[in-house]
Design a binder for these strands. Structure first.
Length: 442
RNA sequence: GGAGAGAUGGCCGAGCCGGCUGAAGGCGCUCGCCUGCUAAGCGAGUGUAGGAGGAAACUUCUACCGAGGGUUCGAAUCCCUCUCUCUCCGCCA
């Protein structure tokens, strides 16, 4: 059987070969699908043959049962069926080879872009939809956040390197407090105002779950794997949270379901050597509040817009300048049908950097994870649509805050919305001798 | 870590000395009837996936009783391995 682990729908691909080819080409991942057609047709031919034999076996077995009951001699039929069973076994083996081939072909095919996604080659072709707020202006040379953080004694990359290595951060004092404040702030806004249910999931997931959301098998090198265990450290809460409903059949009236989860995220960042080597932008471990939705197909694109708004709300309240970008076909992630990125302004770099990525996966993940729903009064099941988006990446939010609200004297103003989460602290400034000493507690 | 018990349909729960059991019974759900509303009651229906046929409603076949193997003409039922859950003992928080 081929249930549950395809990505695109086998039937759909079979019946829309040209469309699929065209879509994959737009993504810059062309495939002639010849191997698909080949495996698929072989598989069906073998299936037919095997099922006919099984039918025969079932009927004759019943006859044997009756004969045995009536004390008749069935040894001839039994001998006959013995060879039939052997034949079935051989066919089943051949069949499973083709099914495996077909599955791995399907697993390698990326999701089809939604018609509204701009066609393009790479990130150059992404479309900026809007810019919100204004970039802060400075009458002094703004410092990069790592310098601000180190000067304030709230970020320590040298000791982090000693403890773990490159691409790790050690937050101290008000830095650690700021990170925690942001997590709480984000969770509160999403759960109390946007209607999400807070969840705290496992930070490791097994192979099956990691495959369902699309991180495996294609992106294994991006993940941290626990040696000797079937566990992967989560690269995003998307993995454990989307798998909450793995294998379930939900009721239509339970949809949409909205979840908000804080987790640390672990990424190997293989292949990004030399990029963003300083500071908090690219870490092996970072914190994120993730928003995940399960929706019906007819509402999933409305839900995507709402998800985007929910993520933007955080930046607005913090008073950070950002832009919203629609990813083009060539820049779309493997599993996504449509993605908006939110990019926050990073003053020291004079650049917008991704701080959230909001995607509709349609039924792509649901098919792998076998997440379905039943419509009221209708027979059968349908796959749900899954969506997720960062709301937001916490470390990068710290970057934006430190750099955007830095003062000439090296202090940093805390956005008003965050102060309740910081014991009313309005500003982080350097106070020599404070960190970790008894005087600091006064 | 040691000893035991279990895993069945949306849910609960029979079957488990092998053969009309895709699976009794109950709950839930859907449709219809009945009652002034609600509740109760009565009747019918109600798993998933894949294949073949059909424009379609649908028909038919195959598979599925935690997962994967094995025995057998035939397995939810017997055997092996694994996973998970529960109980008791020990250990650690």
């Amino acid at each position: 059987m081929l249930t549950g682990h395809a990505m695109l729908d086998v039937k759909f691909v079979r019946q829309n070969l040209d469309f699929v080819r065209e879509s994959l080409k737009k993504r810059g991942q062309p495939s002639d699908l010849e191997d698909f057609v080949d495996s698929d047709s072989k598989r069906r031919a073998l299936l037919l043959e095997a099922e006919e034999l099984k039918h025969q076996r079932n009927i004759v077995s019943q006859r044997i049962a009756r004969m045995t009951k009536d004390k008749e001699d069935a040894s001839e039929l039994i001998a006959e069926m013995r060879t039939v069973s052997q034949k079935i076994k051989a066919l089943d083996e051949e069949l499973s080879q083709h099914e495996q081939a077909l599955r791995s072909i399907l697993m390698g095919l990326a999701n089809l872009p939604h018609p509204s996604v701009p066609v393009g080659k790479d990130s150059e072709d992404n479309v900026v939809l809007r810019k919100v707020g204004e970039a802060p202006s400075f009458d002094f040379e703004p410092l990069p956040h790592w310098e601000i953080g180190q000067d304030l004694g709230i970020l320590d990359f040298e000791r982090a390197a000693k403890i773990a290595g490159a691409r790790f951060a050690l937050y101290m004092g008000q830095g650690a407090r700021l990170e925690r404040a942001l997590i709480n702030f984000m969770l509160d806004v999403h759960t109390k105002e946007h209607g999400y249910l807070e969840v705290l999931p496992p930070f490791m997931t097994n192979r099956n779950s990691t495959t369902a959301t699309g991180q495996l098998p294609k992106f294994e090198e991006d993940l941290f794997k626990l040696e000797g265990w079937d566990y992967y450290l989560v690269p995003t809460a998307e993995v454990p949270v989307t798998n909450i409903h793995q294998g379930e059949i939900l009721n239509e009236d339970e949809l949409p379901r909205l979840y908000a989860a804080y987790t640390p995220c672990f990424r190997s960042e293989a292949g990004s050597y030399g990029k963003d080597t300083r500071g908090l932008i690219r870490q092996h471990q970072f914190n994120k509040v993730e928003l995940v939705k399960f929706a019906t197909p007819e509402t999933s694109y409305e839900e995507l817009e709402r998800l985007l708004n929910d993520a933007e709300a955080i930046l607005k309240r913090l008073g950070l300048h950002y832009q919203v970008v629609a990813l083009c076909t060539g820049d779309l992630g493997f599993s996504a049908a449509k993605t908006y990125d939110i990019e926050v302004w990073v003053p020291a770099q004079q650049k917008y950097r991704e701080i959230s990525s909001c995607s509709n996966f349609e039924d792509f993940q649901a098919r792998r994870g076998n997440i379905r729903f039943r419509r009221k009064g209708k027979k059968g099941t349908e796959l749900v649509h899954t969506l997720n988006g960062s709301g937001l990446a916490v470390g990068r939010t710290v970057v934006a805050i430190l750099e955007s609200f830095q003062q000439e004297d090296g202090s940093v103003i805390i956005p008003e919305a965050l102060r309740p989460y910081m014991d009313g602290v309005k500003k982080i400034s350097a106070r020599p001798g404070q960190a970790g000493t008894k005087q600091g507690l006064v």
